[in-house]
């Protein structure tokens, strides 16, 4: 089954909506709690990334019998050096964003930790596409 959401850059009050909705669906499918938690954490991080850095983005989700695939794409500044961004503590978040308690540089590493597969494509000045896959046990 498929789900689609849009994210507005800069609006932290709405971050967490797609991940909550996805969680609801996975709970109804009786996916085990640990797996759901991983997925929700990874997706929430991805959402916050879009809100903190980009202008707008979309989340599209496909749930199949044995796995969930999530694509998060945004129109934004892009990531110049993905390898570097994957390191814990590395952050380009603005001061304002950090003051709100976000942007500690744990986003990508946290996403990696909580997904089975993570692919990131990015073009500076255009945007970023993230694909995350989690398998159900």
């Amino acid at each position: 089954m498929k789900l689609l959401f849009t994210i507005q850059g800069g609006d932290f009050t709405r971050a967490g909506h797609p991940s909550s909705e996805v969680k609801k669906v996975l709970k109804q499918l009786d996916i085990d709690g640990k797996t759901i938690k991983n997925i929700v954490i990874a997706l929430y991080e991805a959402e916050v990334n879009v809100v903190a850095h980009a202008w707008k983005g979309t989340v599209s989700v496909e749930i199949e019998e044995n796995k969930i695939t999530i694509w998060v794409s945004d129109e934004g500044p892009g990531i110049a050096d993905i390898e570097l961004a994957m390191q814990a503590g590395y952050s380009t978040a603005s001061k304002e964003v950090r003051e709100m308690g976000f942007g500690a540089g744990m986003g990508l590493p946290n996403m990696k930790k909580n997904t089975d597969e993570l692919h990131i494509e990015s073009e500076v000045g255009i945007g970023t596409k993230v694909k995350m896959v989690n398998y159900f046990s």
Partner: peptide, 22 residues
């Protein structure tokens, strides 16, 4: 735990039902 909101044990059927509900 006693999950209340599940759509049945068969995941494929449950997904089908949820897609229809959507």
């Amino acid at each position: 735990p006693k999950p209340l909101f599940i759509f049945g044990k068969d995941r494929v059927k449950a997904m089908d039902k949820m897609t229809r509900a959507q």
